[in-house]
């Protein structure tokens, strides 16, 4: 019965400041949509990282007769040099880190090249002897490519050692910057939301100042006086959070899985199933934000 009285008071507060409550809902919606989008972007980055990093290999390019890089001196890598590199890859020091490796000859490289650039005029300019022979190495832990650099980088007959992950890092750092921007905007919006909730609660308290004054006079506990206002703020913010969850689900279903996935079929995108984890976080964040700012706002009225 005590709780029902609190809820009735909270409902009266919502009814009396409906426009402020709507603005709280909208600001919470927008700010939490930004927060959620940033989270989605992070999930997507993580998703792509694990997908591509697993595919990323370390390439050990061998010298060609045209190459002047590394230890090459316009000399094709000799059979001995190739055997030495192979022996290193099979040695006891490296095998624990290597998942598998394979050798790509001039002809294999040419085949792959013509397949990859089919229809491009560059194919006509390339001959097999221009393309280096390569050891492709898959590491058990893709972050440990430095081992291969150390072991093979200086060997004679080796032109260069390239970790394909270095190409991916540029893309990922761009995506990271985008998600940080979203987080920055979200923080600004959250500050605005907190201030707006505080103002709404203050107005609500002002419109109920007679009740508040009487409650204080008859000795109602602070808990009893505060709770309706906190409930009011939390209800408004929770409606906003639920709408934000809906907006994010919409973005994922219609934009990511609908548009992006068909435009870029080779990339794996997050699906609705992946983002369930985000929703409880958003609801919790909205409720905590509202409860805190409502509490701070109403505490000013309760100093005795």
């Amino acid at each position: 019965m005590k709780m029902s009285f609190v809820l009735i008071e909270a409902w009266n507060g919502v009814r009396r400041n409906i426009s402020m409550v709507v603005s709280v809902i909208l600001v919470t919606l927008v700010s939490l949509t930004f927060v959620g989008s940033a989270a989605l972007l992070q999930l997507q980055i993580g998703n792509m990282k694990s997908y591509w990093y697993d595919k990323a290999q370390v390439a050990v390019y061998l010298c060609t007769q045209y190459s002047t890089l590394g230890a090459c001196d316009q000399q094709e890598a000799s059979a001995d040099q190739i055997a030495a590199v192979q022996a290193q890859l099979d040695s006891d020091t490296l095998t624990p880190y290597i998942d598998k490796w394979y050798f790509e000859s001039h002809d294999d490289a040419y085949k792959n090249f013509t397949k990859q650039f089919k229809g491009s005029p560059v194919v006509d300019l390339v001959t097999p002897d221009l393309l280096p022979q390569t050891f492709w190495v898959n590491l058990k832990d893709p972050t440990q490519s430095a081992l291969i650099f150390e072991a093979l980088g200086g060997m004679s007959g080796v032109e260069s050692v390239i970790d394909q992950r270095s190409y991916l890092d540029g893309i990922f750092s761009m995506l990271n910057a985008a998600s940080l921007t979203a987080v920055g905007l979200a923080v600004l919006m959250l500050v605005a939301a907190a201030l707006l909730i505080a103002t709404t609660i203050r107005l609500s308290a002002f419109s109920r100042r007679r009740e508040l004054a009487i409650m204080r006079l008859v000795g109602a506990s602070n808990w009893f006086i505060q709770t309706p206002f906190i409930v009011e703020g939390v209800v408004a913010a929770t409606i906003g959070s639920v709408l934000a969850c809906g907006a994010i689900a919409g973005i994922v279903v219609f934009f990511v899985d609908g548009f992006l996935a068909s435009a870029l079929p080779t990339t794996s995108f997050i699906t609705l199933a992946d983002i369930w984890i985000v929703f409880p976080g958003l609801l919790f964040a909205g409720a905590v934000l509202a409860a805190t700012s409502a509490y701070v706002a109403i505490s000013r009225y309760l100093r005795v």
Binding site: A213, A297, I298
Partner: peptide
């Protein structure tokens, strides 16, 4: 007593 209710909350 109303004046004391009109302070800014933050």
């Amino acid at each position: 007593y109303l004046d004391r209710l009109e302070e800014d909350p933050l």
